[in-house]
Write a protein that binds this DNA or RNA. Structure first.
Lengths: 348, 348
DNA sequence: TTGAAAGCGGTACCAA
DNA sequence: TTGGTACCGCTTTCAA
């Protein structure tokens, strides 16, 4: 039994191929009984409209590209992907995924070969900055380019970003307000090759602490930067434990840093909130389980929002708000406590 | 400036469109200097071969479907997706994702509308069983159907599964061998509508315990089943804590259950491995951080393997081994310890 | 090595 | 409301 095409259906139903096409795409233009005949025939022959043919004819590709750092499997990337998917799949779009764009080789080959040229209807960029010349390359696709948590937004037709700097400013301010005097910020060092959206968080921390330290000479703060990589949490743990004085508050660049840190700190005798306060960023997996106070962002919602903007753009609509900035929200849980000023700082 | 097509390139390069086509797809059939001319022209006009047109002409769709339970964002699903993606993307295939097939409505509409009919080159099914009539529906697509951790494999052209039952048998046996006498299995209850691959794990537990209890009358075991859903870990915690006697060993259906359990148990004064042993299943996120002894499976590798099988199948190749079963591996970490027979069981 | 031309499976305009 | 038909952009056979 051969593959059945639109003309087989037309023949079986005793109508023209135009009518078959309309029965699928504009059913309202076909009389009910004709439509019925067509659908019966189609069902009988296991026929369905070919997306490739529709795409070719329409000039659309029904495909978008998603560029990301590292793996899809990370919490942030998976959420963004799922958010995009939730609105795009329903509209008949596939997502063509380009992972590990932070790898210099991938990046180079992506932007020179530009496999997306004439092959996607929109490009989404998640959480890293693209260079001016890469922007130029992307522009050649002549499709909307939408940023999600991208450090610079001017290169994009639209964007959805959280206020990384403001969020970490709030987190640090919260620690300051609790009376903490020795505050550290643990983070993975920015990479020279790639500006990532989370690098702005450090600036928020520094800004809050600088301002507070001016008014309060007893307040000390420090940035503990460790290499990005598999074991960055262990590196951060080592960095904290080898400080001259144990901090009474830790601001973490992200929950994936904060959670291992607080868990492993226990093994060294430090308990939160008894001995120190700790605040994360993201409200990622297990943050609620370990009762971590953190700054919440919702990458799923950001992905969905970006997808809606992209869709609007490629339908030629004007966006009311092309660039959205979302404020992360302080989620108070159990790892922050007011410092008792009479109690000396704990030592290991 | 209008969109540039193959004939614009042909004209600019002073060749025919056939030559342009060949320059891209069969460069070896074109003389070097002609190819050079074509590529220069193509680059100048931002031209690239259209995947839609290639797809239409070739009869392939360059798209596969992936059906899954629940969200892509869960550890297992994200890993499987990434594994598939890692081999399929490189070969020019997109993945069309169908999530939440466990939802009765989605499931119904998917199998009756069958949107994948004539629109994918292969179908992958992750971690749930499909009904005989659903198999029939899928068969109408006339494309290879590949299972990943599917309870029944006979419906599939190929499959990659782990031995869920055998793995949990090993886990339980390990607890038994450590001398534990009150062993519980915590799990989320199977759903009536959907057979999931993890439901086999309970059988492995029961089999190991039944055999051991026959030889050792002091050995007691029990299955603690809680409703599937958002707070299944809290339900399991409650179930364990409200047992008449606190167990000395806990086998968990999955790490996502074991990790919250061991963490929250601490708040109630129970520490592992001091007071009880606990073993998970999956080796998922944070299992290493919390030092959880567990059974490892590698869904990323399974996805990649399934993808390779699917590709082979749709190229018409014979598979050496259509159905693979992978044994999960016991990863010994810090949450299991030999029970001291002289020490009475702890009480809360 | 290159070119001409027939389709792949639809869509949509124009006519009836 | 329905049918005829010219494409959409590429691949591929056949001929030159």
């Amino acid at each position: 039994m051969h593959k059945q095409g639109i003309r087989d259906v037309a023949q079986l139903a005793g109508v023209s191929i135009s009518t078959v096409s309309r029965a699928f795409t504009r059913p309202d233009l076909v009389s009910p009984k004709t439509r019925e005949k067509v659908m019966t025939a189609a069902n009988q022959l296991d026929f369905n409209i070919s997306r490739s043919a529709t795409a070719l004819k329409s000039g659309q590709t029904f495909r978008v590209a998603l560029l990301m750092n590292q793996e899809v499997t990370s919490w942030f990337n998976a959420q963004v992907f799922a958010g995009l998917e939730s609105v795009l799949h329903a509209q008949g779009y596939d997502i063509s995924l380009f992972q590990h764009i932070d790898d210099a080789k991938n990046r180079e080959s992506f932007f020179t070969d530009l496999p997306v040229l004439r092959n996607v209807d929109a490009v989404f960029v998640a959480s890293f900055a693209i260079e001016p010349e890469e922007v130029d390359a992307l522009r050649r696709t002549r499709v909307p380019i939408i940023g999600i948590n991208t450090p610079n937004i001017d290169a994009f037709d639209a964007s959805v970003c959280i206020d990384d700097e403001g969020g970490m400013f709030k987190a640090a301010q919260h620690m300051i307000n609790l009376g903490h005097k020795r505050i550290v910020y643990t983070c993975s060092a920015p990479e020279e090759s790639l500006v990532s959206s989370i690098d702005a968080r450090g600036r928020g921390f520094v800004r809050a602490c600088t301002a507070a330290a001016e008014k309060d000479p007893d307040l000390h703060w420090k940035v503990l930067s460790v290499p990005r990589g598999r074991d960055f949490a262990d590196s951060a743990l080592a960095a904290v434990l080898s400080e001259e004085e144990f901090p009474d508050a830790i601001c973490c660049q992200m929950d994936m840093m904060a959670i291992p840190l607080m868990l492993k700190m226990q093994r060294h005798g430090y308990y939160t909130p008894r001995d120190y306060s700790i605040i994360g960023f993201d409200d990622a997996n297990y943050a609620d389980t370990v009762d971590l106070t953190t700054m919440r962002q919702d990458p799923y919602a950001m992905g969905a929002s970006a997808a809606r903007k992209g869709l609007a753009l490629l339908h030629g609509e004007e966006l009311k708000e092309a660039h959205s900035v979302i404020e992360p929200r302080l989620i108070l849980r159990g790892t922050d406590a007011r410092r008792n000023p009479d109690q000396p700082l704990v030592r290991g």
